[in-house]
Simulated assay, not measured.
Amino acid sequence: MKSILTIAALTTTVLAGVASATTVNTTYQTSGNPFGTDNLRQVVRVQSPELTTNVYAGLYQMTGDNGFGNFAAFCVDLAEWLHDPVTYTTQPRLFGAAVRDNVAKLYNSVLGGSTVADVIDTSLEAAGFQVALWEIVTETGSSLDVSDGAFSVSQNSGVANMAQFYLDNMGTAATDGYEITFLYNDGYQDLVTVSPVPVPAAGLFLLTGFGGLAFLRRRKKA
């Protein structure tokens, strides 16, 4: 069963009249291994209201229909397990606003406008980012500390330190640099995936204008 927080969030979504969710049929990119050929994962011991055990923390390499194609994803649900294949529905408001904002800040501060594949390319980075996400979506206290509280990790100090580094550097990061998609299934592990928000056409036009002005200045000096 999902956590009370998740159920409440879904109820709020229904009551708010959010548009119908999109259905996505997913599989692993590499048969039998959700972490793909690069195997970006490390073992950590997690303690949370849903689970206390050793688990893999890392970056999932998935593929989906309905326009998804190959995509990178992280887990946002410690209550259940991943499966192949799984049919998900997109849930923009799977969590409350504060959690969604912190998820957005984490992606913005770590990726800085780049893609997940461009930035997270080691098992330590992948596992650290995953643990940071678990802290954000699971912690019920006021501070984001992977060593204490409702959610904590142990037995892998490197991953714990990387996760805490990511969390400590979120600061006042933007919340609008990425399109964030939560994938929900009542019986299996829920996921999150992102893509950079493209610069609007007006912004591209403005950048082009600035480039033209710089070119004219150089010609005038010449």
Rank of each mutant, 00 (worst) to 15 (best):
I4K: 06
I4T: 09
T6G: 02
A8R: 04
A8I: 08
L10T: 01
T11S: 07
A16R: 13
T22S: 11
T22P: 01
T22V: 09
T23R: 05
T23P: 01
V24I: 14
V24Y: 08
N25M: 09
T30D: 03
N33A: 01
N33D: 15
F35S: 00
T37M: 03
N39Q: 12
V43L: 15
V43A: 13
V46K: 06
S48A: 15
T52K: 08
T53K: 07
T53F: 09
T53Q: 14
V55Y: 03
V55G: 05
L59G: 00
Y60M: 14
Q61D: 13
M62E: 10
M62F: 12
G64W: 02
D65F: 12
N66E: 13
G67A: 12
G69T: 07
N70M: 07
A72N: 10
F74T: 00
F74Q: 03
V76H: 08
V76P: 02
D77A: 11
A79I: 04
L82I: 12
H83M: 12
D84P: 00
V86H: 02
T89D: 11
T89Y: 07
P92H: 05
P92T: 06
R93K: 08
L94W: 01
L94S: 03
F95A: 08
G96A: 09
A98T: 05
R100E: 15
R100H: 10
D101M: 08
V103T: 04
V103L: 12
A104S: 13
Y107P: 00
N108V: 10
V110P: 00
V110S: 00
G112V: 10
G113T: 05
T115I: 01
D118G: 02
D121F: 09
D121C: 05
D121V: 03
D121S: 11
S123M: 00
A127Q: 02
L133F: 07
L133A: 01
W134I: 13
E135G: 08
I136S: 04
V137Y: 15
V137T: 10
T140I: 14
G141S: 14
S142P: 03
S142R: 12
S142Q: 14
S142V: 14
S143Y: 13
D148R: 09
A150R: 04
V153W: 08
V153N: 06
S154I: 09
Q155A: 14
Q155P: 01
N156A: 11
S157I: 10
A160W: 11
A160V: 06
N161H: 05
M162L: 08
A163W: 13
L167G: 05
L167K: 05
L167P: 02
L167A: 11
D168E: 15
D168S: 12
M170H: 06
M170G: 05
G171K: 09
G171C: 11
T175D: 08
G177R: 01
G177H: 07
Y178T: 03
Y178K: 00
E179I: 05
T181C: 03
F182N: 08
N185G: 04
D186N: 03
Y188A: 07
D190L: 06
L191E: 09
V192M: 14
S195F: 07
S195T: 08
S195P: 01
P196M: 00
P196W: 02
V197E: 13
A201T: 06
A201I: 14
A202T: 09
A202I: 12
G203D: 04
L204M: 10
L204S: 04
F205T: 06
L206P: 01
G211D: 10
L213G: 02
A214E: 12
R218F: 15
A222W: 12
